[in-house]
Design a protein around this nucleic acid. Structure first.
Length: 849
RNA sequence: GCGGGCGUGGUGGAAUUGGUAGACACACCAGACUUAGGAUCUGGCGACUCGCGUCAUGGGGGUUCAAGUCCCUCCGCCCGCACCA
């Protein structure tokens, strides 16, 4: 047998798997199903280490579940619309379609050269009309159900490129490519009514008990439910007019000393016509950036609007109305009432503008409080004071009572608001899914007929800034679906989050041409049993997908589950040391050599290299490694093994040369081990009792099963190594053929989840039956594990003093007697008898004296 | 500021969920084989005593027969959100 040559083994098995359709999803059976899914990638053209780590995890899960007797669905596809394709078109003159499909081809080959067990028959690309025609139908379904509407909304407008920029393309207020000052521009855009599902989305988070708690919490905060009241304040200048505010603290209404409206509140804008200083304030407020720093440090400022309102509870008292920079137009009603005694911002504002600071809540009845004296407002729970009929009530009770009063007097009502906003899905871009809507002068906004779908993205377009669809007369002009008169198409395309909000449903049956998804297949495969991807999608992608499922159920797709992802695993990033040359420029790890003394030099000219912090891999810091290079040097199996071996999946891991080399050395040892086994020609036909190798195999099977169920891939690998360490010591000639084969086969099955090519090759080499991928999880003989004698820890007063080997079924009384007779124990008893003896079966004996 | 998480050898990390802390590795050290080795194999590897022992899971306190694990408190680090009324 030759040495371990991954360069020939890996392509060999990849070819066999593809030819034999080893990874094709099984047809209907009565076996349980398992849908393993990794977040599909954007086809940038390169598989990076992050993908490799992510997809290696999914592959282990899929292969493991398959061996456990599940029908596994494990598909892969491409999140293929998006901005980078258009940038490539502008920079290099390649058509986005050409660029994208060529990238897909490269990446598909790359993924296949890593040996992932995907059902490639089910591959989807969101930029394919066969995919997006269904998406357009879903959009129309949503439209008919009233879940889609249009409204004016602000965008970042680059006046040089004549294009809309995403928030992340605006750097210090300027366009990332043009450097032009970005303007705010109002455009009429399409929105999905996700807020209608705010309560459902919040409530159903409690069903997601297999999601990281952290992600659930982030979504909870994002939805941001807050309970309070709407209150009408009557204006003094116009008996019929009111200002409506939202508050979570209606109980402190007696402490109100002013009203604040957002600078862009209609009332503020109207008043500014006659108040120049107000106009100036509004202008200034509109200019300040919304970056973290300014928000953090910005002083609370305001400007009197010239208006007053009546205090709803105190006859004859009025409150001034300010425009204030901390009031937000798009939260609540865009107006609030200020209670400086019990709100931090209101307190600062009142101090600045000399407004009254009243205390209406005491920490408790016998513990008075004065915000002015203390220098800070009282924000906690307490007892209401100085508030007429509310006085003496705890905060919670006071809230209920005041809301009832407001309702009785027709001045307000209970209200729940959410931070969550509706989802704007319009993008002023070419490379996206066309929105199937038509604008007709006579009929208004008219949806495209279902029969006319898909609205195909035209290919003959020019890229010279702006949206090419706007300049395409043929495509843009179309007869109105309703009246037939000349009309114009919607030239905006859909947000790519729309594409990725239902691809998992499509995977259930991507062969169905007539419908977006086959409800029977959806019923069979959904929900996704394990979804693996980056934490960066903790909010938007996951929230939108959850929303889609709920919305689809409202539009007739009642077999779609309420929640798409049963279990979520968010994997950590891959990090690497950073290097700089003598000039202080970043250099690639590839360009660096380590010397014998442990210092680093440049390969090119031997000049010294300084080693910087370990950081997440990024192109800008050049601390990236080339996946193809790694696979050429060490093989895909070694890379996959290393990526999962040391660090728990959800944590950031550090890529090191030592690590990948260690993995590679281990695989070579396994190769030699199997060789040694295979060369054993005679076994022991009369073996008396179970061998250590055999027992260790059963223990490993049990342990690995348990840890893989918990996604502890690193611990599973440690257990594989424990088993192989035993087998390295085993002389196979001394044990029976059956036990030796069982041990080797089990080892290959378990290690095969991580290193499938190597193990498949070794399986074949040993002339075992069938293929490795067809093997089911070996039967674990629990009696073999349990029959073992166990080593108990013998403690005296909680301190370890001795060890004792006993049969695992020994009665406690016998263990106690044996333990007490140990000389190490006698020493501490000094002749007396113990106060108490605790025997924990198979673990520990603690003697208290 | 609010919310959440974490803190274990030189390093990555285990610990059956309250039961022998440091599994499994990496690095390092010593030895063997070798023309050579950055290959392979063997052994060592928390600290102090280098003897039986004692101390060790960020610091301090508590609950318990028993605490890395539970509670309180302080310190440090990381992540998310944020003028949200």
């Amino acid at each position: 047998m030759a040495v371990y040559n991954f360069r020939s083994i890996e392509p060999k098995w990849q070819k066999i798997w593809l030819e034999q359709k080893a990874n094709v999803t099984p047809a209907d059976s009565d076996r349980p199903k398992f849908f393993a899914l990794e977040m599909f990638p954007y086809p940038s053209g390169q598989v990076h280490v992050g993908h490799l780590r992510n997809y290696s995890m999914g592959d282990v899960v899929a292969r493991f579940k398959r061996s456990k007797g599940y029908d596994v669905l494990h598909p892969m596809g491409w999140d293929a619309f998006g901005l980078p394709a258009e940038n490539a078109a502008i920079q290099r003159g390649v058509h986005p379609k050409t660029w994208t499909f060529s990238n897909i081809k490269t990446m598909r080959e790359d993924l296949q050269s890593i040996g992932f067990f995907y059902d490639w028959d089910r591959e989807v690309a969101t930029c394919h009309p066969g995919y997006y025609k269904h998406q357009q139908q879903l959009f129309l379904d949503f439209y008919k159900a009233g879940l889609v509407y249009q409204k004016e909304s602000m965008v970042n407008w680059d006046p040089v490129e004549e294009t809309v920029l995403a928030n992340e393309q605006v750097i210090d207020g300027r366009g990332w490519r043009s450097g032009a000052l970005v303007e705010k521009k109002a455009l009429r855009q399409w929105f999905l009514n996700i807020t209608a599902f705010a309560e459902d989305l919040l409530e159903d988070l409690s069903l997601l008990d297999q999601w990281p708690q952290k992600v659930v919490l982030m979504q909870e905060n994002w939805i941001g439910r807050s309970e309070g009241a709407r209150i009408q304040f009557k204006r003094t200048d116009d008996a019929d007019a009111t200002i409506e505010v939202f508050t979570t603290r209606p109980d402190t209404l007696y402490g109100a000393s002013f009203l604040a409206v957002a600078p862009n509140h209609p009332l503020a804008l109207r008043q500014s016509h006659t108040l120049p200083q107000l106009a100036e304030f509004i202008r200034e407020a509109g200019q300040t950036s919304t970056s973290q720093e300014t928000l953090d440090t910005q002083e609370k400022k305001g400007c009197f609007t010239g208006l007053y309102v009546e205090h709803p509870l105190i006859k004859g008292e009025t409150l001034p109305v300010y425009a204030a920079n901390f009031a937000l137009m798009d939260y609540g009603t865009g107006a609030l009432y200020g209670c400086p005694g019990h709100d931090q911002r209101d307190f600062e504002f009142a101090q600045k503008y000399n407004l009254p600071i009243l205390t209406v809540v005491y920490p408790s009845a016998d513990q008075p409080y004065d915000a002015v004296k203390e220098g800070k407002p009282w924000l906690e729970d307490g007892v209401i004071v100085n508030s007429d009929f509310l006085s003496g009530l705890p905060v919670v009770e006071a809230k209920k009572k005041i809301i009832q009063w407001l309702v009785d007097n027709q001045l307000g009502y209970k209200e729940t608001t959410y931070r969550l906003r509706d989802w704007g899905v319009s993008r002023q871009r070419y490379w996206g899914c066309p929105i199937p809507m038509v604008y007709c002068d006579d009929c208004g906004v008219v949806p495209v007929e279902s029969a006319a779908l898909p609205v195909i993205l035209p290919e003959d377009v020019e890229f010279k800034g702006g949206n090419p669809l706007e300049r395409h007369p043929m495509w843009k002009n179309t007869p109105c679906p309703k009246c037939g008169k000349p009309a114009k198409r919607e030239t905006d395309t859909l947000d790519t989050f729309f594409d990725s909000s239902w691809y998992f449903l499509r995977f259930c049956n991507p062969f169905e041409d007539d419908k977006p998804f086959d409800l029977q297949a959806v019923q069979k495969w959904m929900p996704v049993d394990k979804y693996i991807g980056g934490i960066e999608h903790a909010i938007l992608h996951l929230l939108y997908s959850r929303f889609f499922c709920k919305a689809l159920r409202k539009t007739g797709h009642d077999k779609v589950p309420n929640e798409p992802f049963k279990a979520l695993l968010t994997q950590g990033m891959v990090c690497h040391e950073t290097y700089k040359n003598a000039k202080g420029e970043w250099v690639f790890p590839d360009e660096v050599d380590k010397t014998d003394t442990g210092t680093y030099i440049l390969k090119a000219d031997k000049s010294p290299v300084t080693v910087g912090r370990i950081e997440k891999m990024s192109k800008s810091k050049k601390n990236v490694i080339d996946v193809n290079q790694i696979i050429k040097t060490y093989g895909a199996d070694a890379a996959r093994f290393f990526l999962l071996s040391d660090t728990p999946p959800e944590k950031d891991m550090i890529w090191t040369d030592d690590g990948i080399e260690g993995a590679w050395r281990y695989l070579n040892r396994i190769w030699r081990l199997i060789e040694q086994f295979f060369e054993t020609k005679t076994f022991n036909p009369s073996q008396a009792s179970a061998s250590e190798a055999f027992i260790s195999t059963h223990k490993a099977l049990l342990a690995i099963n348990n840890v893989l169920e918990k996604d502890q891939f690193n611990v599973a690998i440690a257990q594989v190594r424990i088993l192989s360490n035993v087998l390295f010591e085993t002389n196979f000639a001394e044990i029976s053929k059956h036990e030796a084969e069982f041990a080797i086969q089990s080892l290959l099955i378990m290690l095969g989840f991580f290193c499938p090519h190597l193990c498949e090759e070794l399986w074949e080499f040993c002339q075992f039956e069938g293929y490795l991928w067809q093997q089911s999880w070996p039967h674990v003989d629990m009696t073999l594990i349990e029959q073992q004698s166990v080593r108990l820890a013998i403690q005296v007063n909680g301190k370890l003093r001795a060890q004792l080997d006993v049969p695992s079924d020994a009665p406690a009384s016998q263990i106690e007697t044996q333990a007490l007779s140990l000389p190490e124990v006698q020493k501490y008893l000094s002749g007396g008898s113990p106060k108490k003896v605790i025997v924990v079966p198979n673990r520990v004996v603690n003697i208290v004296c």
